[in-house]
Simulated assay, not measured.
Amino acid sequence: MAEPLSSEQAGQLAPLMKALADPVRLRLLSLVAAHADGEACVCDLNDAFDLSQPTISHHLKVLHEAGLLDRSKRGTWVYYRIKADVLAGVAGLLGGVGR
């Protein structure tokens, strides 16, 4: 990094990192990103885990509330999409670490 994080940057980054610190949520984020059209519903993600649908929905809600996923409701299903700009910002802040 050319400069250390400011207090404001650290404050913005901390909730995102906290949401990503869970292995299930990290995997969910990668599954949504890799899904066709970069969008997936809970019904598309359940089989990848040995967890109940409400538990998967809870983890997706945490990612959404942290600002990492957008969501839209269609009928009875909620579809999730990666917020690429947010992930790019996280990557940009962390990209210089260790150089």
Rank of each mutant, 00 (worst) to 15 (best):
Q53R: 15
A84H: 14
R71E: 04
L69I: 10
A66L: 08
I82S: 06
S57I: 00
S72D: 15
P54Y: 02
K73G: 07
G89I: 00
G92T: 08
G92H: 08
D70F: 15
T55S: 12
L68N: 13
A84E: 08
H59N: 14
G75F: 01
I56W: 10
A91I: 07
L60G: 13
T76S: 14
L60V: 14
D85R: 09
L93S: 00
G75R: 02
L87W: 03
R74T: 11
S72N: 10
L94I: 09
G89T: 11
V62N: 00
H64V: 07
G89C: 05
H58A: 12
R74Y: 09
T55P: 03
W77L: 10
G92C: 03
V90L: 03
K73L: 09
L69D: 10
R74M: 08
K61D: 15
L60Y: 13
R71V: 07
V62R: 03
D70W: 11
S72Q: 12
S72P: 03
K83N: 12
R81N: 00
R71W: 10
V90C: 04
Y79G: 05
V86Y: 03
H59T: 10
R74L: 06
G75I: 08
K73M: 15
G92K: 05
L60T: 12
A84S: 13
